[in-house]
């Protein structure tokens, strides 16, 4: 399979600080990839560039055969890329199912006229939307809470709603920003199974930002490591684990005995 997402020489600075410097990444279609790096390495900035929240200073983003540079977030979503956030960003006063239905917004072809006159088309679409939302909620395992207000659900369930919502627009690729942050080992194992299910059953390419090395090493087929905005390593989990530059970025440089003596 070919690359679904090709990022070439992407640059973004804020003031004088380069948050992303010359980053190039290839994501294979149907893969599970991770982007890792210490805090402040530019991972979330990279996601924000991909999804159109920030405009890159230079470089190109090719997704599924089209350029995403200069596209608005809703256009990026239409192109088939959706994401979740590090801190949960649900619509807190909507019900769970409504949250998922917002995710289908761009896929719905229905006019206000249809809705007010309640035409046959409206009923069909509405039934389809409701049915699909329930199917997605079942997929992530929280369908029994469909009609509850989302802010009343526990943290782990809110994460699941976010995933269901990100899948609602039938994306080709989902970007998950620290999806297991704050989860205990049991919950993060369940989350890993869910990510595999997303790829295997829905055929959606998954890209994660993740700090939990157990998750990263256990699930990823490809890993890119960022530090100070630059890509310092990439490859399979094994390659990355043994790369001295990665160890340095995470643990600091090993002081040799001669240096220590001085």
């Amino acid at each position: 399979m070919g690359a679904i997402l090709t990022v070439t020489n992407l640059v973004k600075s804020f003031g004088g600080i380069a948050a992303v410097r010359d980053v190039s990444v290839n994501v294979e279609e149907g893969s599970i990839s991770s982007i890792i790096g210490p805090n402040g390495a530019g991972k979330t900035t990279l996601f924000n560039l991909l999804t159109g929240i920030y405009k890159p200073d230079s470089g190109s983003i090719m997704f599924n055969g089209q350029s995403l540079v200069g596209k608005r977030p809703d256009q990026v979503n239409k192109a088939g890329m959706s994401r979740t956030f590090q801190n949960i960003r649900l619509f807190p006063s909507m019900t769970v199912i409504e949250n998922v239905m917002v995710g289908m917004h761009s896929r719905l072809k229905i006019s206000l006229f249809d809705a007010i006159v309640r035409t046959k088309k409206f009923y069909e679409q509405e039934a389809h939307v409701v049915e699909k939302a329930h199917r997605l909620l079942k997929f992530v395992g929280i369908d029994e809470h469909a009609n509850e207000i989302s802010r009343n659900l526990p943290y782990g369930d809110q994460r699941r709603i976010e995933v269901a919502r990100a899948l609602a627009s039938d994306p080709k690729l989902v970007l998950l920003d620290e999806p297991t942050a704050g989860m205990n080992p049991q919950e993060s194992t369940e989350a890993m199974n869910l990510f595999r299910k997303i790829r295997d059953e829905l055929g959606v390419t998954v890209v994660l930002i993740e700090h939990d090395m157990r998750v990263v090493m256990g699930i990823s087929e490809y890993i890119a490591v960022l530090d100070y905005g630059q890509k310092i390593s990439e490859g399979t989990p094994n390659d990355v684990r043994n790369d001295p530059r990665v160890i340095e970025a995470y643990l600091g440089r090993r002081t040799t005995s001669t240096e220590a003596a001085q």
């Binding site: 977030p73 809703d74 959706s82 960003r89 609602a168």
Partner: peptide, 16 residues
Amino acid sequence: RAVAQDQTMSGLLGVN
């Protein structure tokens, strides 16, 4: 309602 609660997120979900 989505835009009222979170503009950025609505955009990312495909709401214009």
